[in-house]
Amino acid sequence: MSKPCCILLVEDDPADAHLTRMAFEEGHVRVNLEHVENGEEALAYLQGEGPYAGKDTPDLVLLDLNMPRMDGREFLREVKKLDHLRAIPVVVLTTSDAESDIYASYDQGAAGFVVKPVSIDDFIHQIRKLEDYWFELVRRPV
């Protein structure tokens, strides 16, 4: 069996993180979902610092925008400055549909902006389509 795809979920709300995990369990791709709670932890994870030493480099980062300590906007700005990390695709996953957030996210290098729906069934469908794109359609850096 091939290695599962690794996704780093950056989300401070435990209920939202739980829902995302459930949606991936309903998906059709084997996913190792790693979860951190803010941008600071996400940067530490990606750089293998402290408790994150030896963790897999994610194939994709799913990023909430509104989080304490370091929010999604700041994380995106920081990660795209780091030469060895900037090739990792980052998709924003949020409840915001503010045009300014959408524009700023793409401007800072996001590779997608998904607005979470209210319905769990719609969310599962969204996650499947996200999987189709990132794990079937496109090639990603190894």
Partner: peptide, 18 residues
């Protein structure tokens, strides 16, 4: 089929700047 997946992602799933 690839083009349809591409369409679905960019024109249905994700929001883009107006």
């Amino acid at each position: 089929e690839q083009v349809q997946q591409l369409e679905h992602y960019w024109f249905k799933l994700v929001k883009r700047p107006e």
